[in-house]
């Protein structure tokens, strides 16, 4: 059973909304902002694609965001954006499921929670920070805000978070456990993650180019990308269909690329994964990469799905102008440990 993509909700370094991402895919790439973090006695300002959640004002009151941190705000904006884009803000919340993937969860709040008891003692641990640091906080805030009483599921396994979340989202629809699923990925760029990146990789070597597989050029990003999904025939497939998702290990022969498909590679400027993309048997097959539009983050594959969906809608293999013709699209994410996630989409 194919799954229709009814709407997209996107926020990241490129701005907010499908048009903002489309603009970046056309080559009007955003300039990275900065992420400042302490580095020993120094502080570093690293380039990073940061997300602004101000457009949330369109959907919810300021008061309702009182206890909601930046991480969950990005997710909330993605979720509302996808429903709005599909014209389904009034969708039946009793049959709406929420499935969220995140590589690191609410990392800034996780460390804010540690701050609360490191500064003031264990008995001053902040319960608000603790509750918001739990990995399913974003999904919970979405379900609560939308009154969505269908299944609410959060998954976390670094770069494979989104393919894995999608696997369960498709199952929920195929098993008729929900009529619509808000499937999304969210990750934030915080100071500690910036510090860790700096320790592991140093500064980016030269300009950010994810297709230059041999070079460590990744620039961090943050944001949320959500897709509103429904069973074929039960909603308008404004962005085409999701056919299938596969996960497995490259070295065990599980990766089979469908004939006649163009590839959206999940490469994001990390040398360690770049080597794996480099050794793929993809000579002669059209392949593109969109990380320059949103940056390097574990849930990059959610943005790749959105970019593929826009390519299907516009019949144009971004960033170029050529038509897709009768080709399908495949989003392929490879992780340094040899795992892959492959999602196939068609118009």
């Amino acid at each position: 059973m194919r799954i229709a993509i009814e709407g997209l909700g996107l926020v990241g370094g490129f701005g907010f909304g499908a048009d903002a991402l489309r603009n970046a895919l056309k080559g009007n790439l955003p300039s990275p902002g900065t992420l400042r973090f302490p580095y020993g006695d120094d502080s570093i300002e690293a380039p990073a694609f940061m997300a602004d959640t101000a457009p949330l004002d369109q959907f919810v009151t300021k008061r309702s965001l009182r206890r909601i941190d930046h991480f969950s705000r990005m997710a909330l904006l993605g979720a509302y954006g996808a429903l709005d884009d599909a014209g389904r803000l009034d969708s039946d919340p009793a049959r709406l499921a929420v499935v969220v993937g995140s590589g690191y969860g609410a990392s800034a709040t996780t460390f804010a929670f540690l701050d609360s008891f490191i500064q003031d003692g264990d008995s001053c641990s902040s319960p608000t920070h603790f509750s918001n640091s739990v990995h399913n906080a974003a999904a919970a805030h979405i379900s609560i805000s939308l009154k969505a009483t269908g299944p609410s599921l959060s998954v976390s396994q670094f770069e494979m978070s989104v393919p894995s979340a999608l696997l369960c989202a498709l199952q929920m629809l195929r098993e008729n456990r929900a009529d619509r699923v808000l499937l999304g990925g969210v990750d934030e760029a915080c100071a500690v993650l910036g510090y860790c990146r700096q320790r592991f990789f140093g500064a980016p070597q030269g300009p950010f180019d994810p297709l230059d597989f041999g070079r460590q050029s990744a620039v961090a990003g943050e944001g949320a990308a959500f897709l509103l999904l429904s069973r074929e025939g039960q909603g308008e497939a404004r962005y085409g269909y999701l056919n299938d998702v596969q996960m497995g290990r490259i070295d065990q022969g599980g990766l089979r690329l469908p004939e006649k498909s163009a590839l959206v590679l999940g490469a994001d400027g990390h040398q360690g994964c770049g080597r794996l993309y480099q050794s793929l048997p993809i000579q002669g097959r059209a392949h593109v990469c969109h990380a320059q539009a949103y940056g390097s983050l574990p849930v990059g594959p959610a943005f790749d799905l959105a970019a593929a969906a826009l390519s299907l809608k516009d019949d144009r293999l971004y960033p170029g102008t050529e038509s897709l013709g009768d080709r399908s699209l495949c989003c392929l994410k490879l992780a340094e440990d040899g795992n892959f996630g492959l999602v196939s989409l068609s118009g």
């Binding site: 206890r67 008995s123 001053c124 902040s126 509750s131």
Partner: peptide
């Protein structure tokens, strides 16, 4: 209820 427990911490602090 979540504010109540936060308030306990805030008052102690």
């Amino acid at each position: 209820s979540l504010d109540a427990v936060e308030l306990v911490v805030v008052i102690q602090k």
